[in-house]
Amino acid sequence: MRLTPAGALVLVAFSVPVAIELRTLFGIFGVALPLASVVVFEAVLLAAIAVAYVASSDSDADAAAKH
């Protein structure tokens, strides 16, 4: 399934609460992280979405080339 630009945008939006709450999750287990950790989490998630986006459009291009 191709990750569309709009789909990627929605994933990016969804990654924001995930990044914020990951810090809370660590807090529950007694690991107090600084505010900067949210930025790091978000950067990691954005990178993952970017990789998925590029990979899916590559495989799409491959599929298109074979036809």
Binding site: M1, L3, L9
Partner: peptide
């Protein structure tokens, strides 16, 4: 298709 992959088929645009 799939358990969760169908989410990708929604009209996000």
């Amino acid at each position: 298709e799939g358990r969760l992959r169908w989410l990708g088929a929604l009209p996000w645009r």
